[in-house]
């Protein structure tokens, strides 16, 4: 089996994988990073969003082998030194999650959104979230959380 080397949450990782292994499968099943979730087969739900070289990527759309040499950050790597990332804190403060299953993907997508777009407004956030499905919240509080989290990231 081929091997792949990459950096995950700041640590070097080397793994033997079947060529067909998806990046999300490497993270979940080989590395035990189960915070990244799988909710669909068609890259629609966004539960698997992570950062690859600083960009939000649906990790079910990428083969593990394609991630060779990249720097990957998952939800587990977002908090630093035991301190929540401002976006994580905003999701808690604004009740932006219920069952929690879509949450890691939502937070990773939201961090990327805030990095890319300087002055987010509600309409932009709603549009930008088109790649992330939530069945619990009706998105209302997710939108509030993203706006607040983005503001806190700039502070």
């Amino acid at each position: 089996m081929p091997t792949v080397s990459l950096e995950v949450n700041g640590k070097p990782v080397k793994a033997e994988v079947e060529a067909r292994t998806l990046l999300v499968q490497l993270l979940r099943y080989d590395l035990g990073l189960t915070g990244t979730h799988v909710g669909c087969d068609t890259s629609q739900c966004g539960a698997c969003v992570i950062h690859v070289d600083g960009r939000a990527v649906k990790s079910c759309t990428m083969l593990a082998l394609q991630a060779g040499g990249t720097k990957v950050v998952t939800i587990e790597g977002l908090a630093r030194d035991g301190k929540l990332h401002p976006m994580q804190a905003a999701f808690k403060e604004h009740h932006g999650l219920q069952c929690g299953f879509c949450t890691p993907g939502m937070i990773m997508a939201a961090v990327d959104m805030a990095n890319r777009i300087p002055n987010l407004d509600e309409k932009t956030v709603r549009h930008e979230l088109e790649g992330n499905l939530c069945r619990c919240t009706g998105y209302h509080n997710i939108v509030q959380a993203v706006l607040a989290g983005a503001k806190a990231m700039r502070a």
Binding site: G35, T74, I75, L97
Partner: peptide, 20 residues
């Protein structure tokens, strides 16, 4: 009250069935 359950979900430390 802000939720007790949030900490594990926002940090990716939940335990859903497929995580076990």
């Amino acid at each position: 009250v802000r939720r007790k359950e949030d900490q594990r979900f926002i940090t990716g430390r939940g335990h859903y069935t497929d995580d076990l």
